[in-house]
């Protein structure tokens, strides 16, 4: 098992290296001079020349790549062109609102989706199943920002129960945090619930066809117990996987949701950077989110081998 875990961790290295290469090339394969693009339309040739020098653009491209990689390996994501502060500091400053809302949204999603998926599997082919599947397809089909605006319209503008936008840190009081975070989290939840409920249903349906489920029924175990203890526990692995892979979806969703609700997180940071053509910040954000995605999936894989006795490598 330890051997597998080590191998799995080592497999992360080439993937992240290629992500870095892609991120590097996205900027460098741009037609035209990156320095001229970054300096903007008003820059003089002298300014562009000095920027070229300071960016190391006069070096051969592979030298530039390895210099950049060396910097990354020291944990340095570079310096923002717009504010002049380090990208690390910018991200550290902005990541907490994003993490708090993402976390709240995952908790809400699992709390909603797993019971829904279980219900669908239990009532397979009947009314309850159809309703859950309909909710799930709909969740995939509505853009997150439309969900967000519907929620704002209903709960903030019409009912006036919740604030329209903004963010309060949990340190400013849990109640205020939740009042501001609940609509953004619900917005993120829509697609995530759809995905997780579907997977719960499919995975549980697979398990419910097993012989030991019939045995349990034959022994006279109560339906609920069979469903939860014999069924759901064994269906947990694919559900956990989808919660993990859905994390990427959540990271994309954050960009939209923070824009709708005006939350000062890393999603807004990204959009501001894109608008200002602040390339180091864009690069840093892509590396960070990919890194989080890879890490989450790694942890889930390792969790299987540790917690699920059926999985042996």
């Amino acid at each position: 098992m330890l051997g597998y875990i080590v191998k799995r961790i080592l497999a992360v290295i080439p993937v992240m290296a290629i992500v870095a290469l892609i991120v590097f090339l996205i900027l460098r394969l741009t037609p035209g001079d990156p320095a001229a693009i970054i300096a903007g339309d008003t820059a003089t040739p002298d300014q562009i020349a000095s920027l070229r020098e300071s960016m190391g653009l006069n070096e051969p491209i592979y030298v530039q790549f390895f210099q950049w990689i060396g910097q990354l390996l020291h944990g340095d994501l570079g310096t923002s062109l717009l504010s002049g502060t380090s990208v690390n500091a910018l991200i550290a400053d902005r990541i907490w609102p994003t993490l708090n809302i993402a976390l709240l949204s995952i908790v809400m999603s699992v709390a909603i989706a797993v019971p829904l998926g279980t219900l669908a599997a239990w009532r397979h082919g009947r009314f309850g199943d159809h309703v859950v599947m309909a909710i799930s397809v709909a969740g995939f089909s509505v853009p997150a920002f439309v969900v967000g605006y519907v929620l704002i319209k209903v709960f903030a503008a019409d009912l006036r129960w919740l604030p329209v936008q903004g963010y309060r840190a949990p340190s400013q009081g849990m109640g205020e945090f939740l009042r501001h975070a609940i609509l953004p989290a619900m917005t993120l939840t829509a697609a995530y619930v759809a995905l997780t409920a579907r997977m719960t249903r499919a995975s549980l349906l697979n398990v419910l066809g097993e012989d030991y489920i019939r045995t349990a029924h034959a022994k006279g175990v109560k339906d609920v117990t069979v469903l939860l203890r014999h069924g759901l526990r064994n269906a947990a692995v694919p559900i956990l996987t989808v919660v993990g892979t859905g994390f990427a979806m959540l990271l994309s969703g954050v960009v939209v949701v923070e824009s709708v609700f005006n939350i000062p997180g890393i999603g807004r940071l990204t959009i501001d950077a894109v608008m200002a053509r602040d390339y180091p910040v864009i690069q840093g954000m892509i590396l960070l989110t990919s890194g989080i995605y890879v890490l989450v999936n790694l942890l889930i894989d390792i969790a299987y081998t540790v917690f699920d006795p059926r999985i042996r490598y």
């Binding site: 993937v15 992240m16 892609i22 994309s252 894109v274 864009i282 892509i286």
Partner: peptide
């Protein structure tokens, strides 16, 4: 696949 689709498209 590790890069969130929206971020890649945005960049």
């Amino acid at each position: 696949m590790a890069i969130p689709p929206v971020l890649l498209a945005v960049a």
